[in-house]
Design a protein around this nucleic acid. Structure first.
Lengths: 383, 383
DNA sequence: ATGGTCGGCTAAACCGGTTTAGCAAGGAGC
DNA sequence: GCTCCTTGCTAAACCGGTTTAGCCGACCAT
């Protein structure tokens, strides 16, 4: 005989307590509508039976889930490998918890974001780093869910939060240019790989080239370029490499550039994790930081001040971005009267630490022509 | 007139397409049960109307949510401030995504974990760091959800994953003892603050003292003590301080100990984040690492190798813990025939880097009596 | 006695899908 | 001609709660 007792339902409690389902529901949700002793008795019976209201049924009837989603364009595994994301999540979580909302992370399911979003039971989503040229962005918008965009291009009808990426990037570039650096390598964040979506209702997503030219990356690149232009310099495309926003991504990006014969005296990385990875590779090929190579990051994660050497980086208020995103989202989810899409732009600022210094060529008074591609690692003078 | 059109329902699609609700459902979920052209037509109509099946309704009927929960004893804000948690989440997320499950983070709601769990719509949970003496642990178990415990004491009926904390801690302590350190400060991870629960059905949770003696902390402490005992030494309680598992927590814990007059030559921290924080404070009071103070962490987060100086720490397979937890959980959720609670114990190992070295007293041949509490920072000889 | 109000409770509808049971038409087999 | 499948579709039940509308009796005022 099957001893596998299923969870008691509200009807079981009602029968056992000799009342209606309604009364049981009241006992939990609006006890003031029952005589005090009735409510107590019902709760006792419920407790004895081990009854817990099924949250899915409640959500269905109430037509809300008290849950917010964090929509990520890449797998959570890769998102979490960037410390930035943990910090952002911290801000989101704190704000959501304050108002009693739960948190659901939504990442591509079988490669499709729209599919994942369709399956997820949330009242609204914070989309982080979803670029406007994402192949599924229209499907995502069409889901009809309240959504606020963080670090994305603006999309009509949605609130958004960005930081002043361009100004931050410009400040970073000005900093290294002022120190005499001319051979600069930019390490950019690449977009998610093209979705190989055979997903539901996907119309003609094939042939989509990964274009690392949109969103955050584009804005920061513009900032770097503005600084170079202002100094009468150029930043040709071959001085820009891209990779994943993680330590490994930065390490391999620098590695690739090095193998291609690039011999920068400064690196402008679009994330601290990448900057740290680049420093690791740089040391492996014999460079000292900042003597031989200056490195600037972006984000100012908590650990940026503690790495070796302490990282010069562009500070942005990451936690606050997450918290503000939730506030904006709630205004829409809860249909506040005065609600209408808003755009927030938060400030960035350069934080100079010890990973940057004067260009070696500036110290040695005369610049030197680029070395041949496959020269040995320690070719650069070590004084 | 309200132009606010609500989302179309399945009945709307059915009417528009001239078929039954059943047919619409089939068109999405089992198209092979319809004539091919009917299915296509229905999907076209659905697309035109912008119809998306309501996932809550589906979950209710199917009695599963295809979502896994991560249960955390503290607010997500504080969980995410420990890089360990991001790494763990990375492992969980990767494994969950592989099998098509979504991820939901469950943290105390209004101070109550049981309440949050009751509200959350998941098929099973991975509980991280939930100590058996948590005031709500019984309520959590009573929820009747499949659950696997990570870094907890064993609970009958549940699968669990731990690492060999004791061996790892012992190795760390042996390492510093072997280097001649005798004045050792342990920086422990404190449990969550006592739940101020006026939560539903909480029976007598008051007067509960935070007992930092359970779970991970207890096991690691045992490991440290074992090493001291084996060397004929002691580790008195006043050499153990506790704090939050974050950089700030470690910084303030060391600060407190210092203010109390402790003058350790080595620190055994139970988390890398705390170790890094302790190093920061140590430097602020004028200590050099490892010359004046050796520091050992625990976890081996990605950045441990990149801080200044590179951190000696106890490595544990954090991502794998997350991934294995999901695998164990799925076995239970999906009712695999051979399923029964399992206990996994993963290995730890000491990774020696540059934050540890010989004790100063060992170099100067004769130990020195502890200094008075409020002595100036740089009292220790700097040679 | 009559009508009105109020406290305490209930029956039934409802949320929006999925699933079960089964109907109707067309073709095959005998 | 009759039965038996098979294909394609549908009506109704169902998931497990919440919410609406309203019943019933007690109490109060007139």
């Amino acid at each position: 005989m099957e001893r596998r007792r299923s969870r008691p339902r509200i009807a079981d409690v009602a029968r056992e307590a000799g009342v209606s389902k309604t009364a049981v529901s009241f006992a939990f949700n609006s006890p003031e509508r029952l005589a005090a002793e009735t409510a107590v008795r019902i709760r006792e019976v419920a407790g004895a039976l081990g009854y817990r209201p099924n949250p899915v049924a409640r959500q269905l009837r109430q037509r809300r889930t008290m849950t917010l989603g964090v929509l990520t364009p890449q797998a959570l595994g890769v998102m979490f490998s960037n410390p930035f994301f943990a910090l952002f999540s911290e801000g989101v979580a704190q704000a959501a918890e304050e108002v009693g909302y739960g948190l659901h992370f939504i990442s591509p399911l079988h490669g499709s974001l729209a599919l994942a979003l369709g399956r997820s039971t949330v009242d609204g989503v914070v989309a982080i780093g979803l670029s406007a040229d994402h192949p599924e962005v229209e499907q995502v918008r069409g889901a009809g869910l309240p959504m606020v965009l963080v670090d994305s291009d603006d999309l009509p009808g949605h609130s958004s939060i960005v930081v002043d990426d361009e100004a931050g990037a410009r400040a970073a570039a000005v900093h290294v240019i002022d120190q005499g650096h001319r051979e600069v390598l930019v390490i950019a964040v690449e977009g998610p790989a093209p979705a190989g979506g055979d997903g539901v209702g996907a119309d003609a997503a094939d042939g989509h080239e990964s274009s690392p030219g949109e969103g955050v990356t584009a804005r920061r690149l513009r900032g770097y370029r503005a600084a170079f232009a202002a100094a009468g310099l150029e930043l040709p495309a071959e001085r820009v490499v891209a990779g994943r926003a993680s330590i490994e991504g930065g390490a391999s990006a620098f590695q690739r550039a090095w193998a291609l014969g690039r011999r920068p005296t400064a690196v402008l990385a679009m994330s601290d994790a990448m900057a740290i990875g680049a420093m690791r590779t740089a040391r492996e090929v014999g460079l000292r930081i900042p003597d031989d190579l200056s490195v600037v990051g972006f984000d100012d994660i908590d650990l940026a001040a503690h790495v070796d050497p302490p990282l010069t980086t562009v500070h942005q208020p990451i936690r606050q971005k997450g918290a503000d995103a939730v506030r904006l989202l709630l205004a829409e989810v809860e249909q506040r009267a005065d609600h209408r899409p808003r755009r927030l732009r938060l400030e960035t600022r350069l934080t100079v630490r010890e990973s940057t210094g004067p260009a070696p060529s500036a110290r040695r008074s005369s610049p030197q022509s680029p070395q041949s591609p496959q020269s040995p690692p320690k070719a650069r003078p070590t004084g």
